[in-house]
Design a protein around this nucleic acid. Structure first.
Lengths: 332, 332
DNA sequence: ATGAAAGCGCTAACAT
DNA sequence: ATGTTAGCGCTTTCAT
C-alpha cells in the first residue's frame, strides 16, 4: 500500500479511502490512485485491514457440514457460497463426520481465523464452544440438526413429521411389518426420524417390533448388512423406511441382492441423485437443502447486520415424492 | 494475548513462545501460561500472527472446483480438506461454474485473503492471474483441466486415452454408429475427450459423422434434448458415449424416455453414484477424484515446503467399469 | 530464560 | 480534500 501511495504521490490513508470508496477524495486523485493500483497489481490485504477496522470483520464465514462430499451437504454449501459471494464473503468449509472431536477442532480452526459468522451442523447435542461464541459475539446458525440448547438459531427439516409421512405412506398401502433403518440415535436427526416412525406406527395401531428396528447404522455397508439380516429372518418386513441418504443406498443394495426390489416397499428420507431412474423409482421424503442453506445464510447475514432479536427456529417442510418403490403393496 | 501475559505474569513474547512451542521457556512458566490461556478461553489470532511472521503463512488454502455440489468436486474437496487439516490448514472452497469471470473473482478473493497456496480447476485455458501468482510466489496446482500454459503443475485424468478406451469398448461390441455427447469444447476436458472419441473411431476405421456429435452441452437438460433428437433421427446411434457426469444423467433420461435403455448401449465418462443400481448398470470410464485430490494436495504441500523443482504433469489413469449398459450389442 | 521495542499492512481518530 | 499518528494482535530482533 505504501508503494501505491508513493507512486500516486499521496498518503496511505488516501489509498485506503479510495479502496473502500470513502467520501472526501477528489476524482483526480482517485484516478491516480487507481492507476497506481493497477500498475502494481496491488491487492489489499483483507486480513490486515480487519485487524484495525472498527467492526473487525474479516468477510469470511465458516461452514461445517456432515461431509463436503455428501450431496445434501454439497447443495447447502453451494447456496451458502453463492449468497456469501454476493456480499463479498468467502467461505471456509469443513466436514464433521459426525465426530464431536472433529467438530470441535473445525470450530476452533474457524475461530482462530476470525470468521464473522458460522453455519454449523453438529454432532454433539450440547456443543461445548457455545459459550465462547457468545462471549466473542460471533453469530452462528445451526442447520440440519438442532442442538439441545435453548436460544440458538436453527434451520432444519421437519424430521419427525417428514419421517411420519413416509411411514404413513407405507401404512396406507397396507403394510404392517415396516422396518426402520436409522443412523446413530445420539444424532438429533436420527432420533427425530425414529420418533416420526414410531408416531406413524402408533397412529395406525401397529405395535413396534425391535426386530424391525436397526439403528446405529452409519454408512452404506452397515445399512446393507442390517437389512440383509432382516430379509432373511423368520418374519421379514414387507416394507422399509430408511432414515438417511447413505442408508437408503445400502437398503437398495440389500433389496436388489435379495431380489426383493419389486416386492418389498421402500421409502427413504432425503433424496438421492438418480433416484428417479432406478427401477422401481425410489420413493423419498425429500428435504430441500437449497432452501435450508438459503434460510440459514440469510439468517446469518441478518445477525451480522442487525440487533440480536429473538432467535429463530426455522422448520423447512419435507415433501414426499412417490416414484414406485414406496407404492408396492404387501404380499397377499 | 496481553491479558494472558498479564494473568500469567509474563511478557507477551513468552506467551507467543509457549503457543508456538518455541524453545527457551521453563516448564514452570509454560504451565502458568497454559493455565492463563485456558482461564481466558484465549485463542490466538492466526491472521494477526501471519502479518508479522517471517514466512507470512496464513495456514489457509484456496480450492476452486467446478461446483461444490458436483460429486466429482466433492470427492476432491474432501481429500484436500483432510490432508490440509493434518497440517493445520483450513480451506476456502469456491465454485467455478465454468465461467472465467467467476474464476477470476474467486482467485482474487483467495489472494486478498492471503492463502498460502491454491488448487484450481480452470475454465479459462490461459488464466490471466498466473503472472500475479508467480510474482507473489503463491504456488498453485491445477486439477482436472490443464491450462494451455507451460510450466504449471497439473494433476488430471487421462481424458483422451480414457475416452478412447470407452469408445473402443463399444466398438469391440460391434457398434459403428456411436454418438458423442460432450460439453463445451473450449473446456480442456471436453475437447480432450472428444479427441479420444475420434481416436477410437479412426483406429476402428469408422468415419466421423457430425450428425452423431453433439457438443456444447452443459447440463442434464441440454444433453437429454440432444440425445432425444438423435434417437428420433433417420439414422439413430446404436451406442452413446457421454463425456461428463451430468451429461450422462441427461443421456440416461433420454434413453429411458425413448424406451431404449436396453437396446442402445451407453458408456459414460466419470462415475455416478448409484450407477451400479440402475438397470442396466451404467458402464463408465471412472476417474479417481480422491487420487487426483490427494496428488494435487501433496504436490501443493511440497511446493510450500521445498525448493521449486521441475513442475509436474501428473496424469491419473482412468478405469473402465463394465456394468451392463456398455455391453449391449448393436441390433441385427 | 525472559522481555522491550519495532513493525507487519491496514484503518480510526484527529489534525490540517 | 488530504496527511499524520497511533494502534489492531501478533512475531521479530535484540537486549538483558
Amino acid at each position: 500500500m505504501k508503494q501505491v501511495a508513493a507512486l500516486a504521490g499521496v498518503g496511505t490513508k488516501t489509498v485506503s479511502r479510495v479502496i473502500n470508496d470513502e467520501p472526501n477524495v477528489s476524482e483526480a486523485t482517485a484516478a491516480r490512485v487507481w492507476d497506481a493500483i493497477r500498475a502494481l497489481d496491488y491487492q489489499p490485504d483483507l486480513q490486515a485491514g480487519s485487524l484495525r477496522r472498527s467492526d473487525g470483520r474479516t468477510r469470511t464465514l465458516g461452514l461445517l457440514v456432515g461431509s463436503v462430499d455428501n450431496p445434501f451437504a454439497g447443495a447447502i454449501h453451494r447456496v451458502v457460497e453463492d449468497l456469501a459471494a454476493e456480499r463479498g464473503m468467502a467461505v471456509f468449509a469443513s466436514s464433521l463426520d459426525d465426530d464431536p472431536a472433529r467438530e470441535g477442532s473445525a470450530v476452533r480452526a474457524f475461530l482462530q481465523r476470525r470468521v464473522d459468522g458460522l453455519i454449523l451442523t453438529t454432532a454433539s447435542r450440547r456443543p461445548d464452544y457455545l459459550a465462547q461464541l457468545r462471549e466473542r459475539g460471533i453469530p452462528a446458525v445451526f442447520v440440519d440438526r438442532e442442538p439441545l440448547v435453548d436460544g440458538l438459531d436453527t434451520v432444519a427439516s421437519d424430521n419427525r413429521a417428514g419421517a411420519a409421512s413416509g411411514v404413513e405412506h407405507l401404512v396406507a398401502r397396507g403394510h404392517r411389518r415396516i422396518a426402520l433403518l436409522a443412523d446413530r440415535l445420539d444424532l438429533a436427526t436420527a432420533s427425530e426420524r425414529q420418533q416420526g416412525y414410531l408416531d406413524a406406527l402408533a397412529a395406525a395401531g401397529i405395535s413396534r417390533s425391535d426386530a424391525l428396528m436397526a439403528t446405529d447404522l452409519h454408512d452404506v455397508d452397515t445399512a446393507r448388512a442390517a437389512l440383509e439380516r432382516m430379509l432373511h429372518s423368520a418374519e421379514p418386513p414387507t416394507a422399509v423406511f430408511s432414515a438417511q441418504n447413505l442408508i437408503t443406498i445400502g437398503a437398495l443394495h440389500a433389496l436388489r441382492d435379495a431380489g426383493c426390489s419389486h416386492t418389498v416397499a421402500l421409502v427413504g428420507f432425503d433424496d438421492l441423485p438418480l433416484a428417479d431412474l432406478l427401477d422401481p423409482g425410489v420413493t423419498v421424503v425429500a428435504q430441500d437443502p437449497q432452501e435450508i442453506g438459503r434460510r440459514a445464510a440469510e439468517r446469518l447475514f441478518a445477525l451480522l447486520e442487525g440487533p440480536d432479536d429473538e432467535p429463530i427456529r426455522d422448520v423447512v417442510p419435507t415433501r414426499l415424492i412417490p416414484r414406485g418403490s414406496g407404492e408396492i403393496a404387501p404380499p397377499g
